[in-house]
Design a protein around this nucleic acid. Structure first.
Lengths: 147, 147
DNA sequence: TTAATAACTTGCAAAAAGCAAGTAGTTTGT
DNA sequence: ACAAACTACTTGCTTTTTGCAAGTTATTAA
């Protein structure tokens, strides 16, 4: 076996990722923020998959402690909090898009359009930028318009 | 909000991925195959994280049912089975490498070398090919040499 | 100032994970 | 040929985590 070529990639440590994203709810919280524009507790609760309130609270706390998410009071409504992705959280976009791309290719019930698959297959980096900017825009709007 | 531009990417379905990879052990099995050359039950059991035998059996079965893994008898030793990644499983390499890349950037205790980070940051597609070929080679060797 | 709302917390039942021990099919050694 | 060893599991039981319903607290609208 070719031992010391520069082409041998020995990378196995996934402990950090799995510690943070090793369960589906953490992933879904981030997905809801990125693609559904969720930034309030209630919005996550109302999201399709139906998280339990205690689980949601736990995951938001965990993601915040790990620096993927920030919390702040809604300046327009003091009884609401706003949750946003940090740079560290946004840096997960490539990984998440690769997972979505994989779904697009292998999920027999995938509903991803050809247009989207084209972007993921041929213009991946661009897709990452689009999702990122989309998110940043969205936040900007949500923050200044009360729910 | 820009509604109908071709740049609006509305992709949220991750149900399929999460159904298959929504827990850490499934991920770790695939990682062990890709990066540690695990292809036998015993090898997975002996891997660092310490899976319970019942959990491992369950996950290998699940991954096989979902078509990410195949099982066959070891032609060289009838009491052993060989587990291998299918094309569908190998197609997860980009996603896994993105997660590893993310770890490299954000895990304060990351042990990834600069060389590897260079590949992930600047030559991502090449890194995917390398990992893929590395795996395919490895299998070829393992299959024909008894444990 | 009463009612409603948002973001949680708590308590309990159900499901899943983790551990130890056991089992079935091969195979090696004598 | 037969006993001991090996590999890939399964089973039963304990512990942990999840999921659900019902509070609780802080803030705001009527």
């Amino acid at each position: 076996m070719t031992q010391n070529t520069p082409y041998k990639l020995t990378l196995c440590p996934m402990t950090y990722v799995l510690e943070i994203l090793g369960d589906k709810w953490s992933f879904l919280v981030i997905r809801d923020m990125l693609f559904k524009g969720c930034c309030r507790y209630k919005q996550f609760i109302e999201s399709d998959e139906g998280v339990a309130t205690n689980i949601l609270a736990n995951r938001l706390k965990k993601l915040t402690e790990h620096g993927l998410v920030t919390q702040c009071k809604d300046p327009a409504n003091g009884r609401q909090k706003l949750y946003h992705l940090t740079e560290k959280g946004l840096d997960l976009i490539p990984a998440i898009l690769q997972l979505i791309k994989w779904s697009g290719h292998h999920d027999p019930r995938s509903i991803l359009s050809e247009h989207i698959m084209y972007y993921l297959d041929e213009k991946f980096d661009e897709a990452v930028d689009i999702v990122r900017n989309q998110y940043l825009n969205q936040c900007h709007i949500d923050d200044h318009s009360a729910a």
